[in-house]
Amino acid sequence: MKKLLLIAFTMVAAVLVLAACGANKADNSNTSGSTGVEETGTAASAKITIKAKRYEFDQPVYTIKKGVPTEITLKSEDGMHGVEVSDLKLKLDSDEPKVVTINDAGEYEFHCDIMCGSGHSKMVAKLVVE
């Protein structure tokens, strides 16, 4: 009886671990028609670089064109920083460019999504899509 209970518990634990891994992968997807962002896999027509350093981004506002494939690169100049545009479900990692096409015009606030120190909460800027 104990052996059967141990096997059942092990199987339930394995299912939960696999489900958690699968859910995390799905949550990190950056391709979504409902958010107006597409990772096209095509060559970029435009490029922007967001530089992060000492609890701030190098510009308060970055502007890109609606519907234009744009390569966005995050350069972390003093350690680990990341960028999350919550409204677009878009995440950027340092030195890993992404080519995205944003189809919805508007202003989107973004923030550093890696706890980088005491000034972390002040690391915000805007992405304007015209």
Rank of each mutant, 00 (worst) to 15 (best):
G36V: 02
N30V: 04
A8G: 13
K25P: 00
C21R: 01
A23H: 10
A13D: 01
T40S: 12
I7V: 15
K2L: 05
V12N: 05
A8S: 15
L5M: 13
K3G: 02
K2Q: 06
T31N: 13
T31V: 15
A8F: 13
K3T: 12
L5R: 09
T40I: 11
V12Q: 06
V37R: 00
G22E: 02
T10V: 09
N28Q: 15
G36H: 01
K3Y: 09
E38H: 03
S34K: 14
C21I: 05
A26W: 10
L18V: 05
N30Y: 01
V17A: 09
G22N: 08
F9K: 01
A23L: 12
T10K: 02
K3N: 11
N30C: 05
C21M: 06
L5C: 08
L4D: 10
L16F: 10
L18A: 11
D27F: 08
T10N: 03
A19V: 11
T10Q: 02
L4A: 15
S32Q: 14
L18M: 13
T42I: 12
G33R: 04
L5T: 10
E39M: 07
L6P: 00
L5H: 09
V17G: 02
C21D: 01
G41S: 04
T10L: 11
V17Q: 02
N30L: 01
V37M: 00
A20P: 00
L6E: 07
T31Q: 13
L6M: 15
A20H: 04
G41Y: 01
V15R: 01
N30E: 07
A13P: 00
G33L: 06
T42L: 09
T35M: 09
S32D: 15
M11D: 06
T42H: 05
E38S: 11
K3F: 05
A26D: 12
T31L: 11
G36T: 03
M11S: 15
K3V: 06
A20L: 08
F9Y: 03
G33F: 02
G22V: 02
L4S: 12
K3L: 07
G36A: 10
L5S: 12
L5I: 12
F9C: 08
G36Y: 00
L6S: 11
E38G: 02
L18P: 00
T40A: 06
V15S: 06
G36C: 06
T40G: 07
A14V: 13
D27S: 15
L18N: 11
A43C: 07
